[in-house]
Write a protein that binds this DNA or RNA. Structure first.
Lengths: 130, 130
DNA sequence: CTGGTTGCAAACTCTTTGCAATCCT
DNA sequence: AGGATTGCAAAGAGTTTGCAACCAG
Protein backbone atom coordinates (compact mmCIF):
# COMPACT_ATOMS: atom_id res chain seq x y z
CA UNK A 1 0.00 0.00 0.00
CA UNK A 2 2.61 2.48 1.12
CA UNK A 3 4.77 1.66 -1.88
CA UNK A 4 1.96 2.58 -4.25
CA UNK A 5 1.16 5.80 -2.44
CA UNK A 6 4.80 6.79 -2.84
CA UNK A 7 4.52 6.29 -6.60
CA UNK A 8 1.50 8.60 -6.61
CA UNK A 9 3.38 11.34 -4.78
CA UNK A 10 6.51 10.94 -6.88
CA UNK A 11 4.52 11.50 -10.03
CA UNK A 12 2.90 14.61 -8.60
CA UNK A 13 -0.54 13.16 -7.91
CA UNK A 14 -2.42 13.62 -4.70
CA UNK A 15 -3.19 10.89 -2.20
CA UNK A 16 -6.94 11.09 -1.86
CA UNK A 17 -9.69 9.05 -0.23
CA UNK A 18 -10.94 7.50 -3.51
CA UNK A 19 -7.44 6.54 -4.58
CA UNK A 20 -6.60 4.93 -1.24
CA UNK A 21 -9.89 3.05 -1.32
CA UNK A 22 -9.42 1.70 -4.87
CA UNK A 23 -5.90 0.67 -3.96
CA UNK A 24 -7.02 -1.24 -0.88
CA UNK A 25 -9.78 -2.98 -2.83
CA UNK A 26 -7.26 -4.13 -5.42
CA UNK A 27 -4.84 -5.22 -2.72
CA UNK A 28 -7.50 -7.42 -1.15
CA UNK A 29 -8.77 -8.85 -4.44
CA UNK A 30 -7.48 -12.34 -4.97
CA UNK A 31 -8.29 -12.30 -8.65
CA UNK A 32 -8.53 -9.54 -11.27
CA UNK A 33 -11.63 -7.40 -10.67
CA UNK A 34 -13.83 -5.76 -13.28
CA UNK A 35 -14.50 -2.03 -12.95
CA UNK A 36 -17.89 -2.66 -11.40
CA UNK A 37 -16.47 -5.18 -8.97
CA UNK A 38 -14.01 -2.53 -7.83
CA UNK A 39 -16.82 0.03 -7.67
CA UNK A 40 -19.09 -2.26 -5.66
CA UNK A 41 -16.35 -2.62 -3.07
CA UNK A 42 -15.71 1.13 -2.85
CA UNK A 43 -18.52 2.45 -0.71
CA UNK A 44 -19.20 6.17 -1.06
CA UNK A 45 -16.96 6.57 -4.08
CA UNK A 46 -18.52 7.70 -7.32
CA UNK A 47 -18.21 5.40 -10.32
CA UNK A 48 -16.49 8.11 -12.36
CA UNK A 49 -13.82 8.48 -9.70
CA UNK A 50 -13.21 4.75 -9.62
CA UNK A 51 -12.98 4.83 -13.40
CA UNK A 52 -10.53 7.73 -13.46
CA UNK A 53 -8.47 6.29 -10.65
CA UNK A 54 -8.04 2.99 -12.47
CA UNK A 55 -7.03 4.84 -15.65
CA UNK A 56 -4.53 6.85 -13.63
CA UNK A 57 -3.11 3.71 -12.04
CA UNK A 58 -2.72 2.11 -15.47
CA UNK A 59 -0.82 5.13 -16.76
CA UNK A 60 1.44 4.92 -13.71
CA UNK A 61 2.01 1.20 -14.19
CA UNK A 62 0.44 0.45 -10.82
CA UNK A 63 -2.31 -1.58 -12.44
CA UNK A 64 -2.50 -3.77 -15.51
CA UNK A 65 -5.47 -4.72 -17.61
CA UNK A 66 -6.44 -8.36 -18.07
CA UNK A 67 -8.82 -9.88 -20.60
CA UNK A 68 -10.14 -13.24 -19.59
CA UNK A 69 -12.30 -15.73 -21.44
CA UNK A 70 -15.53 -14.20 -20.13
CA UNK A 71 -14.70 -11.14 -22.31
CA UNK A 72 -14.84 -8.78 -19.35
CA UNK A 73 -11.99 -6.34 -18.88
CA UNK A 74 -10.38 -6.86 -15.50
CA UNK A 75 -7.69 -5.11 -13.54
CA UNK A 76 -4.97 -6.25 -11.20
CA UNK A 77 -2.19 -4.58 -9.27
CA UNK A 78 1.27 -5.02 -10.71
CA UNK A 79 2.86 -6.68 -7.72
CA UNK A 80 4.48 -9.71 -9.25
CA UNK A 81 5.78 -10.52 -12.69
CA UNK A 82 3.34 -10.85 -15.58
CA UNK A 83 1.40 -14.08 -15.57
CA UNK A 84 -1.70 -15.62 -17.07
CA UNK A 85 -4.88 -17.09 -15.64
CA UNK A 86 -7.13 -20.10 -15.75
CA UNK A 87 -10.70 -19.79 -14.60
CA UNK A 88 -12.99 -22.62 -13.52
CA UNK A 89 -16.48 -22.38 -14.99
CA UNK A 90 -17.74 -24.65 -12.23
CA UNK A 91 -16.69 -23.03 -8.98
CA UNK A 92 -15.53 -19.75 -10.50
CA UNK A 93 -12.06 -19.78 -9.02
CA UNK A 94 -9.28 -18.02 -10.91
CA UNK A 95 -5.71 -19.30 -10.65
CA UNK A 96 -2.45 -17.88 -11.86
CA UNK A 97 -0.59 -19.81 -14.53
CA UNK A 98 3.16 -20.10 -14.43
CA UNK A 99 3.66 -20.80 -18.10
CA UNK A 100 4.07 -18.59 -21.17
CA UNK A 101 4.79 -18.94 -24.83
CA UNK A 102 5.94 -15.40 -25.54
CA UNK A 103 9.54 -16.24 -26.33
CA UNK A 104 8.54 -18.96 -28.77
CA UNK A 105 6.20 -16.57 -30.57
CA UNK A 106 8.94 -13.95 -30.69
CA UNK A 107 11.30 -16.40 -32.32
CA UNK A 108 8.67 -17.75 -34.68
CA UNK A 109 7.40 -14.40 -35.92
CA UNK A 110 10.35 -12.05 -35.42
CA UNK A 111 7.82 -9.46 -34.16
CA UNK A 112 8.68 -6.93 -31.51
CA UNK A 113 5.80 -8.06 -29.30
CA UNK A 114 4.54 -5.40 -26.91
CA UNK A 115 1.28 -6.93 -25.74
CA UNK A 116 -0.13 -10.39 -25.40
CA UNK A 117 -2.89 -12.29 -23.65
CA UNK A 118 -3.22 -15.95 -22.88
CA UNK A 119 -6.23 -16.91 -20.85
CA UNK A 120 -7.90 -20.25 -20.27
CA UNK A 121 -11.16 -21.48 -18.85
CA UNK A 122 -12.78 -24.84 -18.20
CA UNK A 123 -13.39 -27.16 -15.30
CA UNK A 124 -10.88 -27.56 -12.53
CA UNK A 125 -9.87 -31.06 -11.34
CA UNK A 126 -12.47 -30.95 -8.54
CA UNK A 127 -15.38 -29.71 -10.65
CA UNK A 128 -14.77 -31.98 -13.63
CA UNK A 129 -15.42 -35.19 -11.67
CA UNK A 130 -18.73 -33.97 -10.25
CA UNK B 1 -20.52 -20.63 -49.17
CA UNK B 2 -22.76 -23.49 -50.25
CA UNK B 3 -21.54 -25.64 -47.37
CA UNK B 4 -22.65 -23.03 -44.84
CA UNK B 5 -26.03 -22.53 -46.48
CA UNK B 6 -26.59 -26.27 -46.16
CA UNK B 7 -25.95 -26.06 -42.42
CA UNK B 8 -28.57 -23.31 -42.19
CA UNK B 9 -31.17 -25.42 -43.94
CA UNK B 10 -30.34 -28.57 -42.00
CA UNK B 11 -30.95 -26.73 -38.77
CA UNK B 12 -34.30 -25.42 -40.00
CA UNK B 13 -33.26 -21.83 -40.61
CA UNK B 14 -34.09 -19.91 -43.76
CA UNK B 15 -31.56 -18.75 -46.31
CA UNK B 16 -32.20 -15.02 -46.52
CA UNK B 17 -30.56 -12.03 -48.12
CA UNK B 18 -29.00 -10.73 -44.87
CA UNK B 19 -27.60 -14.15 -44.01
CA UNK B 20 -26.09 -14.67 -47.42
CA UNK B 21 -24.57 -11.21 -47.30
CA UNK B 22 -23.01 -11.64 -43.83
CA UNK B 23 -21.63 -14.98 -44.94
CA UNK B 24 -20.02 -13.55 -48.03
CA UNK B 25 -18.49 -10.68 -46.07
CA UNK B 26 -16.95 -13.14 -43.63
CA UNK B 27 -15.73 -15.33 -46.48
CA UNK B 28 -13.93 -12.38 -48.04
CA UNK B 29 -12.49 -11.05 -44.76
CA UNK B 30 -8.85 -11.94 -44.44
CA UNK B 31 -8.80 -11.30 -40.73
CA UNK B 32 -11.43 -11.47 -37.97
CA UNK B 33 -13.93 -8.61 -38.35
CA UNK B 34 -15.68 -6.72 -35.58
CA UNK B 35 -19.47 -6.47 -35.72
CA UNK B 36 -19.30 -2.97 -37.15
CA UNK B 37 -16.76 -4.00 -39.75
CA UNK B 38 -19.17 -6.69 -40.86
CA UNK B 39 -22.03 -4.19 -40.80
CA UNK B 40 -20.09 -1.61 -42.81
CA UNK B 41 -19.56 -4.21 -45.52
CA UNK B 42 -23.22 -5.25 -45.62
CA UNK B 43 -24.94 -2.51 -47.59
CA UNK B 44 -28.69 -2.27 -47.05
CA UNK B 45 -28.69 -4.66 -44.10
CA UNK B 46 -29.84 -3.37 -40.73
CA UNK B 47 -27.37 -3.52 -37.86
CA UNK B 48 -29.77 -5.60 -35.77
CA UNK B 49 -29.98 -8.20 -38.53
CA UNK B 50 -26.20 -8.40 -38.79
CA UNK B 51 -26.07 -8.76 -35.03
CA UNK B 52 -28.69 -11.52 -34.92
CA UNK B 53 -27.16 -13.30 -37.88
CA UNK B 54 -23.76 -13.43 -36.25
CA UNK B 55 -25.31 -14.73 -33.01
CA UNK B 56 -27.13 -17.38 -35.03
CA UNK B 57 -23.94 -18.39 -36.83
CA UNK B 58 -22.14 -18.72 -33.50
CA UNK B 59 -24.86 -20.99 -32.14
CA UNK B 60 -24.55 -23.11 -35.29
CA UNK B 61 -20.76 -23.27 -35.01
CA UNK B 62 -20.37 -21.51 -38.35
CA UNK B 63 -18.58 -18.58 -36.71
CA UNK B 64 -16.27 -18.28 -33.73
CA UNK B 65 -15.57 -15.28 -31.56
CA UNK B 66 -12.03 -13.93 -31.21
CA UNK B 67 -10.69 -11.50 -28.63
CA UNK B 68 -7.59 -9.75 -29.73
CA UNK B 69 -5.24 -7.37 -27.92
CA UNK B 70 -7.18 -4.30 -29.04
CA UNK B 71 -10.04 -5.52 -26.76
CA UNK B 72 -12.51 -5.58 -29.61
CA UNK B 73 -14.63 -8.69 -30.10
CA UNK B 74 -14.09 -10.09 -33.56
CA UNK B 75 -15.64 -12.90 -35.55
CA UNK B 76 -14.29 -15.37 -38.07
CA UNK B 77 -15.74 -18.26 -40.03
CA UNK B 78 -14.83 -21.69 -38.76
CA UNK B 79 -13.17 -22.94 -41.89
CA UNK B 80 -9.87 -24.22 -40.61
CA UNK B 81 -8.68 -25.55 -37.29
CA UNK B 82 -8.50 -23.20 -34.29
CA UNK B 83 -5.53 -20.87 -34.39
CA UNK B 84 -4.28 -17.68 -32.79
CA UNK B 85 -3.32 -14.27 -34.12
CA UNK B 86 -0.63 -11.65 -34.04
CA UNK B 87 -1.46 -8.09 -34.97
CA UNK B 88 0.99 -5.39 -36.06
CA UNK B 89 0.40 -2.05 -34.39
CA UNK B 90 2.33 -0.37 -37.17
CA UNK B 91 0.66 -1.45 -40.40
CA UNK B 92 -2.35 -3.11 -38.79
CA UNK B 93 -1.97 -6.48 -40.45
CA UNK B 94 -3.23 -9.55 -38.65
CA UNK B 95 -1.54 -12.91 -39.16
CA UNK B 96 -2.45 -16.39 -38.06
CA UNK B 97 -0.16 -18.11 -35.60
CA UNK B 98 0.60 -21.76 -35.94
CA UNK B 99 1.55 -22.37 -32.34
CA UNK B 100 -0.41 -23.19 -29.21
CA UNK B 101 0.24 -24.05 -25.61
CA UNK B 102 -3.07 -25.68 -24.79
CA UNK B 103 -1.72 -29.19 -24.25
CA UNK B 104 0.98 -27.97 -21.91
CA UNK B 105 -1.58 -26.06 -19.84
CA UNK B 106 -3.82 -29.12 -19.74
CA UNK B 107 -0.98 -31.21 -18.39
CA UNK B 108 0.14 -28.57 -15.95
CA UNK B 109 -3.26 -27.81 -14.47
CA UNK B 110 -5.26 -30.99 -15.02
CA UNK B 111 -8.21 -28.77 -16.00
CA UNK B 112 -10.76 -29.79 -18.56
CA UNK B 113 -10.14 -26.69 -20.67
CA UNK B 114 -13.06 -25.66 -22.85
CA UNK B 115 -12.03 -22.18 -23.91
CA UNK B 116 -8.81 -20.32 -24.36
CA UNK B 117 -7.37 -17.27 -26.03
CA UNK B 118 -3.82 -16.42 -26.97
CA UNK B 119 -3.38 -13.21 -28.85
CA UNK B 120 -0.32 -11.09 -29.50
CA UNK B 121 0.41 -7.62 -30.80
CA UNK B 122 3.48 -5.57 -31.50
CA UNK B 123 5.55 -4.49 -34.48
CA UNK B 124 6.09 -6.80 -37.42
CA UNK B 125 9.62 -7.28 -38.82
CA UNK B 126 9.01 -4.57 -41.46
CA UNK B 127 7.55 -1.96 -39.13
CA UNK B 128 10.02 -2.43 -36.32
CA UNK B 129 13.00 -1.26 -38.38
CA UNK B 130 11.30 1.93 -39.56
C1' DC C 1 -50.23 -19.25 -46.51
C1' DT C 2 -47.60 -18.86 -42.35
C1' DG C 3 -43.98 -18.98 -39.12
C1' DG C 4 -39.38 -17.39 -39.25
C1' DT C 5 -36.94 -13.14 -40.23
C1' DT C 6 -36.17 -8.26 -40.97
C1' DG C 7 -36.00 -3.24 -40.15
C1' DC C 8 -36.96 0.29 -37.18
C1' DA C 9 -36.89 2.36 -32.92
C1' DA C 10 -36.04 2.24 -28.43
C1' DA C 11 -34.07 0.25 -24.24
C1' DC C 12 -29.92 -1.25 -21.93
C1' DT C 13 -25.26 -1.52 -20.40
C1' DC C 14 -20.86 0.10 -20.16
C1' DT C 15 -17.63 3.78 -20.78
C1' DT C 16 -16.26 8.52 -20.94
C1' DT C 17 -16.46 13.61 -20.17
C1' DG C 18 -17.71 18.70 -18.68
C1' DC C 19 -18.10 21.40 -14.88
C1' DA C 20 -18.92 23.45 -10.40
C1' DA C 21 -17.88 22.22 -5.70
C1' DT C 22 -14.46 20.24 -2.76
C1' DC C 23 -10.18 18.50 -1.08
C1' DC C 24 -4.97 17.86 -0.64
C1' DT C 25 -0.55 19.93 -0.03
C1' DA D 1 -4.61 29.69 -1.45
C1' DG D 2 -4.79 27.32 -5.60
C1' DG D 3 -4.52 23.68 -8.61
C1' DA D 4 -5.77 18.81 -8.62
C1' DT D 5 -9.58 15.86 -7.83
C1' DT D 6 -14.32 14.54 -6.93
C1' DG D 7 -19.31 13.84 -7.57
C1' DC D 8 -23.03 14.53 -10.35
C1' DA D 9 -25.29 14.38 -14.44
C1' DA D 10 -25.33 13.72 -18.98
C1' DA D 11 -23.27 12.27 -23.37
C1' DG D 12 -21.30 8.48 -26.18
C1' DA D 13 -20.54 3.95 -27.84
C1' DG D 14 -21.79 -0.67 -28.24
C1' DT D 15 -25.19 -4.24 -27.52
C1' DT D 16 -29.74 -6.19 -27.20
C1' DT D 17 -34.86 -6.52 -27.73
C1' DG D 18 -40.11 -5.80 -28.93
C1' DC D 19 -42.99 -5.57 -32.55
C1' DA D 20 -45.39 -4.86 -36.88
C1' DA D 21 -44.33 -5.67 -41.69
C1' DC D 22 -42.26 -8.84 -44.83
C1' DC D 23 -40.50 -12.90 -47.13
C1' DA D 24 -38.73 -17.85 -47.96
C1' DG D 25 -40.35 -22.35 -48.26
Amino acid sequence: MQKFLEILKEKGSKVTRPRKKVLSVLLNANYPFTLSEIYRNCTDIDFASVYRTVQLFISMKIVRQINMCDKKIRYELIIDKPHHHIQCNGCGKIEKLDICILDEVRKLTDYNITEHMMEFSGLCPDCKIK
